[in-house]
């Protein structure tokens, strides 16, 4: 069994599902001959032909609208937005139609579609290539949002997203596309779409994150351990619906919680987690919940972007503050 990267996990899942379900169709800009600008769809057009791996005209409105139409008529389209910053023209079709179709027609028409997009900062890219905009989608009823942070989770969660009967936004943390490899059996086994992953057990503080900042969060846990502090690390992965039970269980044990995300702080997904802790775990908490996030600014162009993204040190400091508080 070969070891693969996160992006290869995406490719492997697409190929598996296309082989096993003829209704799965991939479409987007440069996804065919070129295999995607990040190579996520490499080799697929050769295997499945130009009507199942479709290079579209350059128009996100077209891609999203076509995707809704195809999904309503029995296909399972997996569309690619070339970057998360180019997803906005898709919003009308996603928000006004894809997420409402089932409810609007009382289940007569449905939209089993996936929109994949490379997501997040830290790769020295131009403007609009570095956003973490998951919160924008988390407020939309009827949508699922997934952000994998390992090759195995990319594979298993993308399979689940394609098989899910409703629209799923699948954000791929591009900063860790090729960070490391692991063995991922190509067995078609999907992962659940509504369960957080506990990556590391700990007693003193719960660190919650998703996407590329899982890397810094795990490093922070190492740093804390070196100082005798035991941190539990949770990868949320399925942003919506949120598996709050897993987070709650952990916080009930540790009494402390630090939420880490690279998106802006204000009304970020961290705010939802903190609110639920306040509602449901108030008496388990030994210290105020901490959030380590991007600032409420645009992510700067790349000369300053690393000053925007939360570094390990800030996570460690926040964790220590929760310990100092009690």
């Amino acid at each position: 069994m070969a070891e693969i990267t996160l992006i290869e996990g995406v490719t492997q899942a697409l190929a598996w599902e296309m082989r096993n379900d003829p209704s799965v169709v991939v479409l987007g800009e440069d996804v065919g001959v070129n295999g995607g600008v990040f190579r996520a769809t490499v080799g697929l057009q050769e295997q499945f032909g130009p009507w199942r791996v479709i290079d579209t005209p350059l128009c996100e409105t077209s891609i999203a609208g076509l995707t809704v139409g195809m999904a309503c008529q029995g296909l399972k389209p997996v569309a690619e937005a070339q970057f998360e910053g180019f997803i906005y023209p898709m919003l009308e079709h996603l928000m006004c139609h894809a997420v409402r179709m089932r409810n609007r027609t009382r289940g007569r028409l449905t939209c089993p579609l996936v929109v994949r997009a490379p997501w997040g900062g830290g790769i020295r890219a131009p403007e609009h290539h570095s956003e973490a905009n998951e919160a924008l989608f988390a407020n939309v009823p009827g949508l699922r949002i997934v952000i994998p942070s390992s090759p195995a989770r990319a594979y298993g969660l993308l399979l689940a997203a394609i098989r899910d009967p409703d629209p799923v936004i699948f954000f791929e943390p591009k900063r860790i596309y090729r960070q490391y490899k692991e063995e991922v059996p190509d067995d078609g086994e999907a992962l659940p779409l509504d369960v957080c992953f506990v990556l590391r057990d700990g007693r003193d503080v719960t660190l919650v994150s998703w996407g590329a900042t899982i890397k810094e969060t795990l490093e922070a846990a190492d740093a804390l351990e070196a100082e005798g502090i035991s941190a539990e690390v949770i990868d949320v992965a399925t942003i919506k619906p949120l598996d709050f039970d897993t987070i709650h269980e952990s916080v009930a044990k540790t009494g402390r919680c630090v939420i880490v995300h690279e998106a802006p702080k204000n009304v970020g997904v961290g705010a939802e987690i903190a609110a639920r802790l306040a509602e449901q775990a108030m008496y388990d908490l030994l210290a105020p919940v901490e959030r380590v996030t991007g600032y409420d600014t645009h992510i700067p162009l790349f000369r300053l972007e690393m000053k925007y993204l939360p570094p390990v040190g800030r996570i460690v400091e926040a964790a220590k503050r929760t310990l100092a508080a009690s």
């Binding site: 800009e29 440069d30 065919g32 001959v33 070129n34 600008v37 290079d55 005209p57 350059l58």
Partner: peptide
């Protein structure tokens, strides 16, 4: 060309 997509595929 639009990256890898030729003019003939656009319209």
């Amino acid at each position: 060309w639009a990256i890898s997509v030729p003019r003939s595929r656009q319209t």
